[in-house]
């Protein structure tokens, strides 16, 4: 005990500041990795996008500074325009996964024998790798042997080659992507529905609310956190779409299913792609688009946290 009394004057700088230092130390590994693998590469992309460089050898020696040249070229690049529009299509249509997931979740939110089995069956597509989903769907769409055309001809309709038709191919791929994404949103809503307050439902029922009005005014507002997460993962999923495209059409037919991430890969890293600078410029554009959403997400999270603190 007497020893403890003597201690305070001997306390080092580290001990005195440990309340500030400890969290910083715990943050350090995360911050370090985030900086090395995320933040610094973002700035590197900006930097490289001002060069014409084939990605081999040193940037300083082999690269040629072109300033905004790559961006100017992007403006007139039709393939870029197609990719950008496809990204918009992906963003808009991928959001269908949210109402789809909500609908299935409401449907499955009941107590029937074996409901767990049904729930896991509905969740199954999300467990599958995207590559497998892509393969399964490309077999489904096969022009001659595919199930889709078998069904269409059964109903007396003309068979269609979804992935071979430049006007349809992107929609075909998005449909494939919606399958696992809907399952993901479903599981988010299922957990959300567990947290719905039964007393509020009861009160609403006493006031005579049912059906759509009950869903719209009572249930959905309580599902807001689930909706927010579903929105975030779906937007990010739509902008990240790459594997399905690579597996199902490889960007074709004649480049009609490319999105920005795929086009970037093609230009910078693929078999015939030796334009690091140009690829980086595409990456920067994609980053800026993502930044809009990321900023919105961060802002709404910050706002919510501030309200919670009040």
């Amino acid at each position: 005990m007497t020893v403890a009394v003597d201690l305070p004057p001997e306390q080092g700088w580290f001990r005195r500041n440990r309340m500030t230092l400890t969290p910083l130390l715990f943050l350090l590994p995360g911050v370090l990795f985030f900086a090395v693998y995320v933040v610094i590469p973002i700035f590197q992309s900006f930097y490289i996008s001002t060069y014409e460089w084939n990605g081999l050898g040193e940037l300083q020696e082999q690269g040629e500074f072109v300033g905004m040249g790559n961006y100017r070229e992007l403006m007139g690049d039709r393939a870029f325009e197609v990719s950008l529009w496809n990204n918009v299509k992906w963003l808009a249509l991928y959001l269908l996964a949210i109402p789809g997931g909500l609908f299935i979740a409401l449907f499955l939110n009941q107590t029937v024998t074996g409901i767990r089995i049904y729930k896991s069956l509905f969740f199954f597509p999300f467990v599958l790798s995207q590559v497998v989903v892509g393969l399964v769907f490309s077999w489904f769409y096969l022009p001659r042997e595919g199930l889709l055309n078998a069904a269409l001809t059964l109903f007396g309709m003309e068979p269609i080659n979804v992935l071979g038709d430049p006007t349809l191919a992107t929609y075909g791929i998005i449909a494939a992507g919606l399958w696992p994404q809907t399952a993901y949103c479903m599981i988010l809503y299922l957990t959300g529905l567990n947290a719905v307050d039964p007393e509020q439902i009861e009160a609403a029922r006493l006031d005579g609310a049912k059906g759509w009005r009950m869903l719209w005014h009572v249930v959905i507002p309580q599902l807001r956190p689930a909706t927010f997460i579903a929105f975030v993962v779906t937007i990010i999923g739509a902008l990240r779409s790459f594997d399905l495209i690579s597996v199902m059409t490889n960007g074709g037919p004649f480049g009609s299913t490319r999105v920005l991430s795929f086009y970037m890969f093609e230009k910078a890293l693929s078999e015939y792609g030796f334009r690091m600078g140009y690829g980086s410029a595409i990456a920067v554009v994609l980053f800026l688009i993502m930044l809009v959403f990321i900023a919105y997400f961060l802002w709404s999270m910050w706002r919510e946290e501030r309200e919670a603190r009040r």
Binding site: G164, G252, P253, F254, E266, E271, Y272, G273, R275
Partner: peptide, 22 residues
Amino acid sequence: FDRDFPAEMAALGMEGLQEFMV
């Protein structure tokens, strides 16, 4: 085709050829 033409020309060229065939 893809070994005689420079890489980028080959990639764009073959895409055009496929489009022409369709």
